[in-house]
Design a protein around this nucleic acid. Sequence first.
DNA 1: AAAACGGTCAACCGCGTTCCG
DNA 2: TCGGAACGCGGTTGACCGTTT
Length: 446
Amino acid sequence: MGRAPCCDKQGLKKGPWTPDEDQKLVAYIQRHGHGSWRALPKHAGLLRCGKSCRLRWTNYLRPDIKRGRFSLDEEQLIIHLHAILGNRWSAIAAHLPGRTDNEIKNYWNTHLKKRLLHMGIDPVTHKATQSPPLLSSKLSHLAQWDSARMEAEARLARRASPDTFLRTWKAQGTGDLPSAPLVPSFMQNWEHLSSSPDLSRSTSTTTSSSPSGGSSSTLEFDSAGAALLLNHLQSSMSSSNTSQLNQMESLMSPTSTLHPFDGQDCSSYSSPADTMMQQHHHHGEAVLQNCDRLMQNSNSCTSFQDLISESCVFPSNNNVGFVDHDSVVVNNPQSRSLWQQPLVQLDSAAAAISSVSDGPSCSVLSCSEDESSSSYGSVLQLPPVMLLDLVDSAMGSSNKLTSEADVGGNCWPDVSQMASKDYWSNMLKLVGPPCQEMLPLAVMER
DNA sequence: AAAACGGTCAACCGCGTTCCG
DNA sequence: TCGGAACGCGGTTGACCGTTT
């Protein structure tokens, strides 16, 4: 025989709670706790079912509930977590102290979902939609970058310091432009671009040894390289929006956060936060192309290397997590959990992912290229911060993107904040810590 | 001034999972 | 081991409120 019924539903009150009922519920729980929701209403003198009491307590009366508007940090964290976890509100709420799953769900449905839609981002898949409802097709490019940026930034936050908002790419190299296809699709872009005479004139590389014994190649772009980037951007934006173009051109100014290097200054930038890494000012065109590629092919992991490259920007890829130099994290839809295992070598990452990705969607096929050497590492960081600056600058000057009419009333938190570079910089600073097992980037040591 | 409209959010509903006798 | 109730979660509803027409 099973349990006794929790309550017969006849004669029980429904609907909004009165202050008197609230008081009874709070008083009872403060004195006795809520060991059994089934028995609680009777003991507390409430004509409610246990389910209703539990809901009222967890969503409203609990003393640690945070009231008031969601902060920008919270918004951005929700978006990031939703990209990874989907509509698992309780899991998302676990990373936002004081917020309930119900509250987050409501906020998502009434604010964040609309905002993403207006940006041309599918709120379910977190990818660019075919036809953004409000943005022009040209501006949808910005939305795509923004989507990728939201995910990439969150992962970067725990690795990068504010002064290292640069593409960093440490690869096996000899001083020439990197050639080892550690992240094949990215490298394909690189190889394509590096054959361009324009780029050859616009870049330089330096090489240094890392403490682990490996070597690094650093690529820096000069003002000509930055000009190529601007040309690309200009061709992808509405030519009628002169303020936007002017804003982009201002990126070339001495105060620009893009930091385009002149040839003689190529070695002048160093990262106090991570001296192991050379700063790599990657040519913006390559970043653009890579973002485009990732947008188009984010679901097509067919090899371990593909998995690595895809997980750089799309950790929400079904069961695929992301990999760092010391662990691998997998979002397993079957167990509805994030799962983490220390990573020693490539094959342990593959095994780790395989062990929790027990469905046919497992993307790991092999990692036979493992050299089991600890002296060689590849790092790909794709915080599109270069794009961040560009997009923020462009958005900041674009009335189209920041007017109330275009963004659909109050679905944006604050227009002036959105337009500010600080908006996204704050994300970098604040997102991340609640989900300690999340690792920012694809980093493979072998 | 009043009706219509839209946004918000607490609460309910239904379903899958967990637990217990 | 099994049946059934409790539990927990996500989706949906509807009352309320502010804004617009």
